[in-house]
Amino acid sequence: MDENRTGIIQEEEGRSKFLNLIINNRAFSLLLLIIAVSILMSAFFPESFFSYTNLSSILLALSIEGSLAVGMMLLIVGGVFDISIGSNLAVGGAVTAFLIRRAGVPIPIGMIAGIVACMAAGAANGIIVTKVGVNPLITTLAMLGILRGIAVLIAGPGIAALPPKFTILGQKMILGLQIPSYYLFAITIIGTFLLSKTRYFRQLYYIGGNPKAAALSGIKVAKTLTVNFIIMGVIAGITGVILAARLNSAIGLVGAGVELRVLTGVIIGGGSLSGGKGTIPGAFMGALFMGFIYNVMVIAGVNVYYQSIVIGIILLSAVSLDVILLKKFQI
């Protein structure tokens, strides 16, 4: 009798741990969701969906949003965000392509200049938000317009036919995956390490949770947030340069609207606009979930006229389910 009782308690504890993992670890719950949909999709579309090539396609499509989501999650945890990233990445590609193609500058210098330009934009965002005290939404919204204008000014109507030594950096295949996927992995791993293992970046949780208390406890709030805006700028620069290499052209309009997709992925991945919450694996999984859904739409052959409705319903359902589970089970 006692043994049976113990078994039931263990089973309940086991179930509750599993449920807790689903509820409290967004990366894990998203992974489960992706696995569940993947099983369904594989059953219905065994040849087209369940393949390494399709995974490669999803990761490639994810490489921009996923990388940006890492930087955005760092900011979101610290209680701020940056919606100028789409324009900033366009600046990175435009500066690099202009210098390489038009000014004849060596490729590495062109690339560094593109990334540094984006870094400077990130620093400007950080300083205006933290030192001047302007709301991050207003600051980065204004910067979105400024940077888009700069990208269009530099790239003009577009800079195409970039040199092969440059484009290989976005087009090379390694072990069946195109190279931007590896940049995504590297950025995600570095981001995960920074946010989970280093004291400096873990401070972001305190800053995002209660910036005043964080400041009183000796944390340099303004400096830390500015550093993270700069990191966001660097990531935008890297993605912009790599995207130009992949597409073999730099376009002033590229990346428009990417900020909303990234923010959606980050929030789905467990970030909170009020700050203090979120993980890098969560951001990665959130972005992966978004990319995954877009891929599913095409593979499943959902009529194009219904796709945005279906995607909206899936996103709302996923977030609603999460909120319901939290309310019901969180202790």
Binding site: L60, A61, S249, I251, V298, I299, V304
Partner: peptide, 26 residues
Amino acid sequence: IVALEHDNGEEIEAARITRALIQKYP
């Protein structure tokens, strides 16, 4: 005609969709 897809006038979106189409229809 197996598909009509919306690429929003964007190169990157058109590339993503084309890859998925190739995947679905080898």
